[in-house]
C-alpha cells in the first residue's frame, strides 16, 4: 500500500499572552515566539492519522532565525521531521509570498497525502496561505475541516458550517484547512520534548528556494483599537438594560 505522508504548515507567532500594548502599539521586544494555537490542532489531526495509517508527519514552515527552536514544540508533539526556511528577512513577507515559499518546500516532499493548515494565524489571521498553496500546487482544498478521515485513495472531510455540517470526499493529495474545534492537542511528555531536538530538521536557504526576491512589504503602523472602558457602577439589572439600550446594544 502507498505510504501516506502528512504535511503540516506551522507558523511562528508571538506568545500573545505576553504581549504588551504601549501607546496603542504592540511591544514585540523580548516576546517569545511559539507555534500557532490552531496549527497545533492541525498537527494533532495529522499525528492521529499517522497513528491510524502509518506514514510520516512533516512540518513545513517559513520564519525567522529562531525557527529551528520554535519548531521543537511541533516535533515534540508528534511530527517526525521538519523542512523550513529560517531567515530574518521573511518577517516582512506577505501571505502570498509566504505561500510561494511553502509551496516550494512541499513540492520537494514525497508521497504527500494531506497538507494541513490552520484557518488563520494568531497574529495576522489573513486566512489566505492555505488556499494560496492549494492553488499553486494545483491540489483540491477543503476549508473549515472539523473531522478528517482517510478512506483508500480519498479523504472524507467534515466541514463545520454556520448551522450545519457538510461531508466532502476529496482525492489525495489535498489541502485541508482546519478549525480549532477539530480536536484537543495532546501535551508532549518530558521525554518527547527532550528528544525533539534530535529529530531531523532540513533547513533550506532562502536563496536556494528558487524564490524570486519579491518586493518586501513595509508596515508603517500597527495600532491597537481604542477601547473606551466606562467602568460604570450599576445598582441593579434594570439599570444595566437601560444603559445597554442607550448605547444601542439592545433594541428599544
Amino acid at each position: 500500500m502507498k505510504t501516506l505522508n502528512y504535511v503540516v504548515a506551522m507558523k511562528q507567532v508571538p506568545d500573545l499572552q505576553q504581549l504588551r500594548i504601549r501607546d496603542k502599539k504592540p511591544v514585540l521586544t523580548d516576546i517569545p515566539l511559539e507555534l500557532g494555537k490552531i496549527d497545533k490542532n492541525a498537527l494533532e489531526c495529522a499525528v492521529n492519522l499517522k497513528e491510524q495509517h502509518d506514514g510520516e508527519v512533516i512540518l513545513v514552515s517559513v520564519g525567522n532565525d529562531d525557527l529551528p527552536e520554535t519548531l521543537k514544540d511541533g516535533l515534540a508533539c508528534g511530527a517526525d521531521r521538519a523542512k523550513f526556511i529560517a531567515d530574518n528577512r521573511v518577517d516582512n513577507l506577505q501571505s502570498a509570498q509566504k505561500a510561494e515559499l511553502l509551496a516550494k518546500l512541499i513540492e520537494g516532499l514525497d508521497d504527500v497525502s494531506l497538507i494541513f493548515f490552520a484557518e488563520g494565524s494568531a497574529d495576522n489571521y489573513s486566512g489566505q496561505v492555505g488556499s494560496r498553496v492549494a492553488e499553486i500546487l494545483g491540489y483540491p482544498q477543503v476549508g473549515y475541516a472539523s473531522e478528517v478521515k482517510i478512506q483508500g485513495e480519498t479523504a472524507i472531510i467534515t466541514r463545520a458550517l454556520e448551522n450545519s455540517y457538510e461531508d466532502i470526499e476529496v482525492a489525495l493529495p489535498a489541502v485541508v484547512i482546519v478549525v480549532q474545534d477539530l480536536n484537543k492537542p495532546r501535551l508532549p511528555s518530558v521525554i518527547q520534548i527532550l528528544k525533539a531536538g534530535k529529530k531531523p530538521q532540513e533547513r533550506i536557504d532562502l536563496a536556494d528556494s528558487s524564490y524570486e526576491a519579491a518586493e518586501l512589504t513595509v508596515c508603517y503602523e500597527n495600532l491597537a483599537p481604542d477601547t473606551d472602558r466606562k467602568m460604570q457602577e450599576l445598582s441593579c439589572s434594570s439599570d444595566l438594560i437601560e444603559v445597554l439600550k442607550d448605547l444601542g446594544v439592545l433594541e428599544r
Partner: peptide, 14 residues
C-alpha cells in the same frame, strides 16, 4: 533553554 521552556509550559497547561 527551549526544552526547559517547553517542559515548564507543559506543566503549566497540565
Amino acid at each position: 533553554t527551549t526544552e526547559e521552556e517547553l517542559i515548564k509550559k507543559v506543566a503549566k497547561e497540565f
